[in-house]
Amino acid sequence: MDLIYEPWPWYVAGPLIALVMFVLLLVGKQFGMSSNLRTACAAVGAGKASEFFKFDWKAERWNLMVVLGAILGGFIASTYLSENTVNINSEIAQQLSDDYNIKSAGQAYLPTEIFAAENLANPLNIAILLIGGILVGFGARYAGGCTSGHAISGLSNLQLPSLIAVIGFFIGGLVMIHLLYPIIF
């Protein structure tokens, strides 16, 4: 039971993610977790506003089922299979505490300073979450995929466009953490 309860190491998680990709390929689909956002926009009528959302979204209902499953998986894992704390490199945890006053590493799954419901009274936190989400949604569609679609599916298929996109992901991420975090937090 401990093996299930402990965080899963990379050499368990990585191969299982590859397995998810292969199972989806075997049922004739592609592994990607952001195109469902476009499907959701189309399903609520965004096709009236832009051609981009005028497509047969009902044929893409399967990815909304994957989404529903991911929600269910998150519930099962957090409720029955986890201590819900994340231990990271102690130097990084110390640096988070010293520089940004984020002290919940090792005690929570997400930093309570940003994500706890009671801290949403802080408009900065709402702005971080909202703007972060907008960048993720916009960037994923502009780049034609996210971490799963490019970094796993696309690179597995040796796609140069996916390599360019993943390099972009890391440029953006490194700029945010190393240059913009000190200004924002």
């Binding site: 972060g132 960037g139 780049a143 034609g144 996210c146 992901f169 953006g172 924002i184």
Partner: peptide, 21 residues
């Protein structure tokens, strides 16, 4: 599209600390 879109995505990934999945 891949480079600019990717950079925008990466900024959001690091800011909110989550990707779509």
């Amino acid at each position: 599209r891949y480079l600019i879109g990717g950079i925008i995505f990466g900024l959001g990934w690091a800011l909110a600390g989550v990707c779509p999945g």
